[in-house]
Amino acid sequence: MTTVAPETVPAAPERAERQRGQPRWWLYGAAGVAAALGIWAILAQMLAGGGGAIQRLASPLAVGEQLASYATDGMVADLRSSLAIFVAGWLGGGILAALVGLLLGRVTLLGRMFLPIIEAIRPVSSIAWVPLSIVWFGFGFSSKVFLVGLAVFLVVIVYAVDGCTRIPGELVRTSTMLGMSPMQRFRNLILPGTLSEVLIGFRVGLMAGWGTVIVAELVAADAGLGAHLMAVQRSYDIAAVMATMLCFAIAGFLMTVVFTWVERRLLPWRLEEQR
């Protein structure tokens, strides 16, 4: 279960047992997916002649064809430029947030002074920063990285502050008693304690950042998946729009899978805790 998605609905223990024991639970899942695809196909058929608000709905088959043709033409380049923005913003914003979070979390005076400001910025959605980022950084790569970085920063900093303020007091006292210097204590206790929390922030920031890539590219559409999405939208090609949405979803899913794998390598004890 944990291999598929980061936070699936946990089954009650006895249900999990049953699921493992009997293969028919897989069948229910397959039936659900098939039913969803069926409803989608029937709806597309019904709305083909122009039905009310939803004027056209592409059939699953048409979307699949579009996806295949996009995959052979242009998808790799678009994906590469979107991923470049994402990785730069995600790493930059996340690492900066970890550093600032450590500073604000450990130095109480600074924390009291500046944490309320960060708290006030958080409800401003990242989209609202688009005009400013364009004025400051222009329409290119850096303005999008700024937006993604900001979105990830505001997620990760919460975890960083949380992580380093929640280190148990007895551990700090024990380390003092054992004669650790402040520097040693920082390296061996506070930094690892914070990092494991920061990694959760990075995971949460994964989808937040990827979502922001879409927004940034929709607005400043010059390259990437979002630009493609905007281009096919302007030509009213619903099948291509839906195929591009699928691309975003698949990329997001793969990133989560990869990150889960990396996280398990880095912090093997985390999964034990979750279980």
Partner: peptide
């Protein structure tokens, strides 16, 4: 994600 639905 919801953002991806916006154009559609």
């Amino acid at each position: 994600v919801p953002f991806a639905w916006i154009p559609l």
